[in-house]
Design a protein around this nucleic acid. Sequence first.
DNA 1: AATGAATGAGACTTCATTCAT
DNA 2: AATGAATGAAGTCTCATTCAT
Lengths: 190, 190, 190, 190
Amino acid sequence: MGRRHVFTRSELLDHTKRMLLEHGYEGFHLKSLSKRLVGARSTIYQYYANKDEIIAACMRRVMEGVLEQTQAVDETDCMEALRQLLTIYLREAGFHQLMAHAHKIDRTSSAAAAADLAFVEQAHDTLKNQIERLLARAREEGRLNPDIPLPAVTGVFINLINTPNLMNIPLPEWSRMLFQLWLEGAGKRP
Amino acid sequence: MGRRHVFTRSELLDHTKRMLLEHGYEGFHLKSLSKRLVGARSTIYQYYANKDEIIAACMRRVMEGVLEQTQAVDETDCMEALRQLLTIYLREAGFHQLMAHAHKIDRTSSAAAAADLAFVEQAHDTLKNQIERLLARAREEGRLNPDIPLPAVTGVFINLINTPNLMNIPLPEWSRMLFQLWLEGAGKRP
Amino acid sequence: MGRRHVFTRSELLDHTKRMLLEHGYEGFHLKSLSKRLVGARSTIYQYYANKDEIIAACMRRVMEGVLEQTQAVDETDCMEALRQLLTIYLREAGFHQLMAHAHKIDRTSSAAAAADLAFVEQAHDTLKNQIERLLARAREEGRLNPDIPLPAVTGVFINLINTPNLMNIPLPEWSRMLFQLWLEGAGKRP
Amino acid sequence: MGRRHVFTRSELLDHTKRMLLEHGYEGFHLKSLSKRLVGARSTIYQYYANKDEIIAACMRRVMEGVLEQTQAVDETDCMEALRQLLTIYLREAGFHQLMAHAHKIDRTSSAAAAADLAFVEQAHDTLKNQIERLLARAREEGRLNPDIPLPAVTGVFINLINTPNLMNIPLPEWSRMLFQLWLEGAGKRP
DNA sequence: AATGAATGAGACTTCATTCAT
DNA sequence: AATGAATGAAGTCTCATTCAT
């Protein structure tokens, strides 16, 4: 039996996620990462072969978490399902920002990274399809304004995630408020 | 007297802006910048003393352009003014993303950079105040739903700028569409 | 654990001292330094954070060596003490030249460098005081010509250190000779 | 007739000398030099082909000035002659320091620099011979202590030039004082 | 398994020198 | 003759990655 692990794979990815959100892909350095962990910088290479592999693994793990939740959503009532999806996305802070770095990763340097990225991309499509499907159904069911093109509705809905929560309203209420704003608008109802 | 300029200050800042949006603050390298311009890397230093100075100047220029337009907006009709502001912001692609890098710049390295950043920050406040003022007025005039807290309305309005224009709808129409979505919501009106 | 050191901190400072004396502060380059050591240029940064830190550490080490010796000198007989101090200074070749570079070092770049420099400066004062104290005593005791102002006597005494030893006379004898010349002059005694 | 000269060759060499004494050979930059002159940096190349040529010319000019004075000295009374030589050397502040940089100059880069350096070196020998000749005569005439080897006496005499003038005593008196100290010593005469 | 040390590639910046007006 | 602009060589420093213990 060898020595105990000084930090777990999960701890490593947790800090990676936090630092990616703080500093971006190009500002993410293994030097700073190892300072947040307990062990030495070189120990990181016991877990992953290089930097890009870590980032890909991090993205995959976040995506898996989201996917698991979204697939548990009951789609019977499409409006209710959309409301739940919004909550899930809001919970995963910076999710979109994170995924935006995907295309910067060099896939040739590591097969593992390439595989993780492939997974992430496919999952991304799955998520996108789910939302588009639900929105299309909502429209067919007469819940949405038929004068507005679906892509515009979709874009605004997805973009809700990035809305700055200026007052730090607690998540469930914040989610409800955003959904209402999206559905009914900011204007005075007649 | 002296040789002809191989590139202008304006060209330099144009490419800087483009590259900042593509690669972020930490991914912005003078090597790549000089590759997009015609001259040598060291020629850049004829214009600006260091990297941060370039970035600060770039941010200032963008901000000045926006400021000039927003200050020409007639605020008599607050709803109309907001609509125009949205158009202005949408025109300046990636405006927000760009400004987000401001705090990473080292102000001690260059007085010029520090001055540009001070300008940018003050202008930022001016813009924010203008929007908040207009939204408050709109609320008082009974144009907005009084049940929704103003900060939430503000956040969503500002965040409209980042909405992905999936269909590449032309700017004037895209702006009108987003404004309508914000005001009336995506839902079916009764 | 970890690889063997390719060179020690002490070796690094030894070469630094030699090169500072040969080329001066501005002519001291890490490239040449690493060429004299066995390793790569970047390895130097395992020991010191930047160039100025190396120079400051070098100066401090030399100063510590001198200080240790001068503080062991018995000051009962002031003339004998002065003779011993001269020997100590002569032993540390180029001591003065080295210290002359102190003011060129940028103290803001490194706290370690600033601390080392503070030490060096304080020690410098200590040395200066010791010599001035001994010379003043010697004068009071009637061992020096009272017609010559003390600062002139001091200046010439300190400057003895830089006298070119054209014949490479061995240190102890060279020291005795310089002391005698300082005390009795080069002229024929009546 | 072309344009007027913006600065003279002499002004250029004046500033060069001053800056060489302040910053040393390796710390001497044409950029700073041109800042002290009135014209542009590139204008310097109208006078000299490169940096080393300037430094060599500067050294030669200083040397010529000294040589002219030393050769006018009446050597009939050797002690008086030595006293006058000391005054001449003291007048040319930093003379020795300056000449110490001679060996760093690359002679292959410019024939003019090589010629100037050859002159400087020959003149240096002339000066050295003059002093050694006078000191030897002084010894033969019984004016110097015969127990002290001539090279030691010479070294100390030449080194007088570098003595720090802590009280800023005016040159003629300072020269007299140093000469007396050298001749009679700092000790109490019996 | 863990790690301290070593290292080369690459980024920023400065400067002597050349070029074109 | 004078000069503003251009440039490549060289220097400092950082960082991902490898190596030896």
